[in-house]
Nucleic acid binder design. Structure first.
Lengths: 97, 97
DNA sequence: TGGGCTGTGAAAATCCTGTGAACAGCAGGC
DNA sequence: GCCTGCTGTTCACAGGATTTTCACAGCCCA
């Protein structure tokens, strides 16, 4: 899928062959998102996939980690936006910018 | 139903495969309308379906959102009018222009 | 032509998201 | 043990987006 490769079994994500230094949570989130490209995933779905269970009503973990992921992806792939926000619903991963 | 696809479970509405960028309320209204094609729905019905409960006597929310929906549908499908006004009653969704 | 109904831009209110920062827990090295 | 650096969690605030409400213009039909 273009310049970004995600290898869950190897706990790694590569951009042009160079590994991103992601933390465990960041990688889990990226894996979850990328497993459903172009599909809007709710915070509940993402939370269940990464943390397990249901989030507290006011939990912002997903948002915080999306923010950190974007920062690291943005450094490695300037100008591209892979994670799109859908207000009131959740996030969508789009392999092509 | 032609070029417009509505997928409530995915929080999405597509025209020729391309997603419309609708807000939550806009999508809810479109879903409600499209679930009863060719049937005139009163403002009360639409309000109940989207907002829940009954509208205030002078509430114009349904009209405002119909207007916004028409604008976005009109951009994606120029020349077609999917939502028809029935004066004094409400609105009707017609899949074929 | 008049009065109620509808269309719609725009302001106001509300809700949601982005993100820096503080804090706690943990692992390794000394 | 104590310090250091890293990760994860939570909070707080600013900014952004959506929703709600208002106002006025235009439409429709008697």
């Amino acid at each position: 899928m273009g310049r970004l490769e995600i290898r869950p079994e190897e706990h790694a994500a590569l951009v042009d062959g160079r590994p991103l230094s992601l933390t465990v949570r960041e990688l889990q989130l990226l894996v979850s998102l990328s497993q459903h490209p172009q599909r809007i995933m709710t915070r509940e779905e993402l939370f269940a996939a990464v943390w397990g269970g249901r989030p507290r009503d006011d939990d912002r973990s997903v948002d915080v980690y999306v923010s950190r992921l974007r920062a690291k992806l943005g450094e490695a792939l300037p100008g591209r936006r892979l994670i799109h926000t859908h207000n009131g619903i959740g996030y969508r991963f789009s392999p092509d910018g």
